[in-house]
C-alpha cells in the first residue's frame, strides 16, 4: 500500500517533468546532443588507444567497449533519475529553498530524490544499451537468461551505489554550507569506472577498488557477461550497495536535523 503511494507520487513528478521538457523542446534536444557527444568522446578514446595497442590490462578492444558501455549505461540512468535532484539539493539547502521539500506531505528523501527526471539522460540509455549489445556481438558472447538477469541486477546495484555516494557527498552541505566542487569530484572519480580492475594496483587499488566502489560497479557486471556469474563478486557488489546506501541515508537524516531554514 505504501509502495503504491510512492509510485503515485513518482508518477505525478514524472508527469510534471515530461510537461516541463515539452515546454523547452530546443533545450531538450541540445542537452541530448551534449550527452550523446560525451558518450562518443569516451568511446572515441577507446578507439584511439586500441589503434596503437592490443590490450589494456588484459582487456581487448571490445571487452573495454563493453566495460565503458556499462559505465555509460549506469551514468545515463543516474543522470535521468537522480542527478538534477541531488545536485539541486546542495543549492536548495544553502538558499533555504529546501523548506519546500520539508513542508511536503511525503517522505523527505523520496521527495528530494525524485522530484525531477531528465528525459535527455533517458534518451541516451538505448544508445548505451546498443553499445553493450554491439560489443557483446563482436566478442561472440551469447549470455543466458540468468546471466542477463544478474547483469540487470548489478546495473541496479551500480545505480544504487552511484546514487548513495552522490547523496553522501552532497549531504555534507548540511555541515559545509556549500557543495561546490562535488560535481567535478564526482566526474573525476567516475573516470575510474571505465578502467579494468586489473589495471589498478597498490594504493590506487586500495582507494578505487576497495575503499570507494567506483571500479567494481562496472567491472562486476561486465565480467558477468564476459565470464559468467561469480558469486564472490556478486556478494561484494551487493554488500557495497547496501553499505553505501545505509551510510548515505544515515548521513542525510543526521544532516537534516542540523538544517535550519535560511529563508524568511
Amino acid at each position: 500500500m505504501r509502495l503504491l503511494h510512492y509510485l503515485r507520487l513518482w508518477l505525478a513528478c514524472m508527469r510534471y517533468s515530461v510537461v516541463r521538457t515539452l515546454m523547452f523542446r530546443g533545450d531538450f534536444i541540445m542537452w541530448s546532443l551534449v550527452e550523446l557527444f560525451w558518450m562518443a568522446v569516451n568511446l572515441g578514446l577507446i578507439g584511439v588507444i586500441y589503434r596503437h595497442t592490443e590490450s589494456i590490462a588484459g582487456w581487448n578492444q571490445w571487452e573495454m567497449t563493453l566495460l565503458v558501455g556499462t559505465s555509460l549505461l549506469i551514468q545515463r540512468l543516474l543522470m535521468g533519475f537522480f542527478w538534477t535532484n541531488l545536485f539541486e539539493m546542495g543549492r536548495n539547502v544553502r538558499s533555504g529553498a529546501f523548506d519546500f521539500f520539508v513542508a511536503q506531505p511525503g517522505p523527505l528523501l523520496f521527495m528530494v530524490s525524485t522530484r525531477k527526471i531528465d528525459l535527455d539522460g533517458f534518451l541516451n540509455v538505448p544508445i548505451a544499451l546498443g553499445v553493450i549489445i554491439y560489443a557483446a556481438r563482436q566478442l561472440g558472447l551469447d549470455p543466458g537468461a540468468a546471466q542477463i538477469a544478474v547483469y540487470a541486477v548489478f546495473i541496479v546495484c551500480g545505480l544504487a551505489i552511484h546514487y548513495a555516494t552522490l547523496l553522501f557527498f552532497i549531504s555534507l552541505v548540511f555541515w559545509l554550507q556549500s557543495a561546490k566542487g562535488v560535481e567535478g569530484g564526482y566526474f573525476g572519480l567516475n573516470e575510474f569506472s571505465r578502467l579494468p580492475r586489473q589495471a589498478l594496483s597498490g594504493a590506487a587499488a586500495v582507494i578505487f577498488v576497495y575503499a570507494l566502489p567506483v571500479t567494481i560497479v562496472t567491472n562486476v557486471p561486465a565480467s558477468t557477461l564476459l565470464h559468467g556469474i561469480d558469486w564472490t563478486s556478486t556478494a561484494w557488489l551487493v554488500s557495497a550497495a547496501v553499505f553505501w546506501w545505509v551510510l548515505a541515508v544515515t548521513v542525510f537524516h543526521v544532516g537534516v536535523r542540523r538544517y535550519t531554514s535560511a529563508s524568511s
Binding site: I56, G188, E191
Partner: peptide, 29 residues
C-alpha cells in the same frame, strides 16, 4: 586549490590508463 587537487585524481586516472596501454611496448606513435 580544490579544483586543482581534483585534477590530480584525473591525472592518476590518465597515468593508470596509459600505463596499462603501454604495458609490453616501448612506444606508442
Amino acid at each position: 586549490a580544490v579544483r586543482a587537487s581534483f585534477s590530480l585524481v584525473h591525472l592518476a586516472y590518465v597515468f593508470i590508463l596509459w600505463g596499462a596501454a603501454f604495458a609490453g611496448q616501448t612506444s606508442v606513435a
